[in-house]
Design a protein around this nucleic acid. Structure first.
Length: 748
RNA sequence: UGGGGUAUCGCCAAGCGGUAAGGCACUAGUUUUUGGUACUGGUAUUCGGGGGUUCGAAUCCCUCUACCCCAUCCA
């Protein structure tokens, strides 16, 4: 389990601690226009997971504001997915369509505040007016309509008096906003369409940006968690909620990176294409990354949840390796599922020195799985083994049956090959073998050593089953289109042979077919007459890995860094730069930063007029003050140039160290207090007396014998570990230079 | 091109000025009647590049680069 919290949980915890919210409420808000996939599972795991971890609540809400794409079959699929993953949304599923009246009232309110208007531009003109990313847009002339006119028009839009596209309701924000989304976004559009829940009652429908934030607010959501592509929409989210001056508390939006997995596609559009083109058998095709697909294939909800937990939550776009998912399902099934024997590609073996038949008692689980249960394995003269498990001319390191090498029949006897029978084409059709009667599993006294034990079935009793072998849907790591489909993603074996107990006793739905992989009785096509098994995932296979030609490890080319051009300085900036370097002796980097920033340079010069310490002042101004100036204007700063001069003065006369100066500076940023007062109040005066520092170092050294040894063994970077410990012990007050010297001395 | 994001091992991902966590993958070995599992070890002298500040920088400052998102009456 991850010990470290993800950034969302960190935010939630802070908000709870600060009292911003009493209880955390999240929501999972899909649009019911497609089947949920594993990306949704991540979102479900996050939203429901956070609610569970902080004893809050998570709503399931269908974001059904677009009547033309949505359907009730999808809401069922969504509900199934959440339920299957083991989460509980409480009594009701929420629908944005349930809020249509409230939403309408909020829109009216916005119109009354003159913050929204009915626009009647046609679509194309509206796009033109929106401008481009580099050019500001301009506002429609309809933005000047009076409140009364807007109210009347909006009412008539609602009443269905206009055709689709004739008018829209827009927020009145800023047509020249740098954020394109803020250029008077659409709030409502006319759509004479049947809504799967609201029926034909509405002829206007709210847009996502208007409906989503308000739905969150209506439901009392505190943390509205969505994916990265909505970052630009956050401004509207806040604008709507703020403009309406809603009673607090209100929700805030936070974004995380959506899930990508290699060798598959995750977008609804591409998934829909595959389904509609018949490339797959349906939304629940076991090769699809849909929840329904994983469920049908035999994945457990636990494995999906573990996967979501393992991949973490962050803001970097990423592509997770399927191997991670495959590990999760193997790991889960390993401890849960009975082992049985199934032969996929049968090769007949006749044991010539065996007569009659018997039943072998065999445990379903290996010793390292603490579960009980066993079945009877029929054994007789004629058996089948896997064709792969015999080789006439084996490569080096082959552990299975060969003309020279005996092998154990798992749970049974050791056999060796006496004769290889071939057909006219030279294909092996049968093996004549001999068994060793004293090699019975569990009571072997034969003394024969074998290198492996293979699966087998008795010819007479074995049942024929259909096995569907699934492989990755695409052969390209990042698929571009149908050309990248893997032609071998589905292989159907109609006549695999399985031991009878699997069919007659049905000990489970999921099995490990010994040495092959995990399989699942297909929930749709399985019947007693025609048993069908889906391959969930193969076992790790280090033998085939060895035999396969290794992928040539690409020599990793060091990325070539292209250097961009730096904008040249203006004449005035250049003059300033020259003055700083020549007169004040600043290094060019610091002088450069200062000279190019008007606010910084004037702050610097003001402080310089109070204290003649050009270098120290320049350093603190370029590094520390600059950080603050990134957020706010110089006039809003709580501290003054004079106080900075005082601070630098204290560093210069060694009253405090640079480290403490940073600490004091932070306090100045917060309170605007004089540095001298802060130093006094917190007792931050530097300790430089070796006699005072020495005993502290001694203590640290005795406490960390391991690291002392490592240091003496040559791990010199541990010096800074010890320095850090000493500084920590003194609350940062020890003079680091002195500490460094002393520590180095003592550790010698 | 304006704005908003992101960059730490092959793939995810912690880290918030003081010893570069963890998982997957890879790899070597031990155990094994599954070439599985389990266990033990090995895998980043370095955090996109370059500078600067500091006793000390993945973390602070400057700068460059690459990638993602935004100009649907989709969500």
């Amino acid at each position: 389990m991850n010990q470290s919290k993800d950034f969302l949980r960190t935010i939630v915890e802070e908000d709870l601690k600060s009292g911003k919210y009493k209880e955390v409420v999240t929501r999972f808000p899909p649009e019911p226009n497609g089947f949920p996939h594993i990306g949704h599972a991540k979102s479900i795991a996050i939203n429901f997971g956070i609610a569970r971890d902080y004893k809050g609540h998570c709503n399931l809400r269908m974001d059904d504001t677009n009547p033309t794409t949505e359907d009730t079959q999808y809401v069922e699929a969504l509900k199934d997915a959440v339920k299957w993953l083991g989460f509980d949304w409480g009594d009701d599923v929420y629908f944005t369509s349930d809020y249509f009246f409230q939403l309408y009232d909020y829109a009216v309110q916005l119109i009354k505040m003159d913050k929204a208007y009915v626009d009647s531009l046609d679509e194309e003109t509206m796009r033109e007016y929106r401008g481009t990313v580099t050019e500001a847009g301009r506002r429609s002339k309809y933005a000047q309509r009076s409140v009364e006119e807007n109210l009347d028009l909006f009412d008539r839009m609602k009443n269905g008096e206009f055709k689709d596209g004739e008018h829209v309701l827009r927020a009145k924000i800023d047509m020249s906003a740098a954020n394109m989304k803020m250029r008077d976004p659409l709030l409502y559009r006319i759509r004479h369409a049947h809504h799967f829940r609201a029926g034909d009652e509405w002829s206007i429908y709210p847009m996502y940006d208007f409906a989503h934030c308000l739905s969150d607010y209506i439901e009392g959501v505190t943390h509205s968690i969505c994916t990265l592509e909505f970052e630009n929409n956050r401004d509207i989210y806040n604008w709507v909620l703020d403009t309406l001056e809603l009673k607090p508390p209100r929700p805030y939006q936070h974004e995380f990176a959506r899930l990508g997995i290699n060798y598959t596609v995750m977008s609804k559009r591409k998934l829909l294409e595959l389904v509609e083109d018949g490339q797959v058998s349906g939304w629940d095709d076991p090769r699809l990354p849909t929840i329904a697909g994983y469920k049908r294939r035999g994945y457990t909800p636990e494995s999906i949840l573990t996967f979501c937990d393992q991949i973490g939550i962050a803001k970097a776009n990423s592509m997770v390796d399927v191997a991670q998912l495959e590990f999760c399902i193997r790991d889960d099934l390993n401890t849960k599922v009975p082992r049985v024997m199934c032969v996929l590609d049968p090769l007949k073996v006749t044991i010539e020195n065996y007569e009659g038949s018997e039943e072998i008692d065999a445990s379903y689980y290996p010793d390292d799985v603490p579960k009980d249960g066993s079945r009877k394995l029929p054994f007789s003269r004629e058996i089948y083994i896997e064709r792969d498990d015999f080789m006439e001319n084996p490569p080096k390191g082959y552990f299975r049956l060969t003309p020279e090498q005996p092998v154990r029949l798992k749970h049974g006897f050791i056999i060796s090959c006496k004769e290889v029978i071939k057909d006219a084409n030279g294909n092996i059709t049968e093996i004549k073998a001999e068994y060793y009667p004293d090699s019975r599993s569990g009571s072997d006294s034969s003394g024969i050593k074998v290198k492996s034990a293979i699966q087998w079935v008795s010819a007479k009793e074995a049942k024929t089953v259909e096995v569907r072998l699934y492989d990755r849907l695409f052969s390209a790591e990042i698929p571009e289109g149908v050309d990248d489909l893997n032609p071998d993603s589905l292989k159907i074996i109609k006549d695999a042979l399985i031991e009878p107990a699997v069919i007659t006793d049905k000990p489970d739905e999921r099995f490990q077919f010994e040495r092959q992989g995990y399989f699942y009785a297909d929930p749709v096509d399985y019947s007693d007459e025609n048993p069908v098994f889906n391959k969930i995932v193969g076992l790790k296979d280090s033998w085939s890995k060895k035999t396969k030609v290794k992928d040539t490890p690409k020599p990793k080319a060091k990325k070539v860094q292209v250097d961009g051009e730096v904008v040249p300085m203006s004449e005035a900036e250049q003059a300033l730069f020259d003055k700083y370097t020549a007169e004040f002796g600043l290094n060019s980097e610091v002088a450069n930063t200062l000279a190019r920033d008007e606010q910084l340079s004037s702050f610097y010069e003001e402080s310089l007029s109070l204290l003649d310490s050009p270098v120290s002042l320049a350093n603190i101004v370029t590094n520390e003050v600059a950080r603050e100036l990134k957020q706010i204007e110089a006039s809003e700063l709580k501290f003054s140039a004079k106080q900075i001069a005082q601070l630098v003065q204290m560093v210069d006369d060694t009253t405090i160290s640079n480290k403490i100066a940073k600490q004091v500076f932070e306090e100045m940023v917060r309170s605007g207090e004089d540095p001298a007062k802060i130093v006094e109040a917190k007792g931050l005066v530097q300790i430089s007396d070796p006699a005072k520092i020495s005993p502290i170092i001694d203590e640290i050294i005795t406490k960390n014998p391991d690291n002392v040894a490592k240091f003496r063994a040559g791990n010199t970077k541990l010096l800074s570990f010890f320095v850090g410990q000493v500084l920590k012990a003194t609350g940062g007050k020890a003079n680091p230079k002195v500490v460094n010297e002393l520590v180095a001395e003592k550790l010698k």
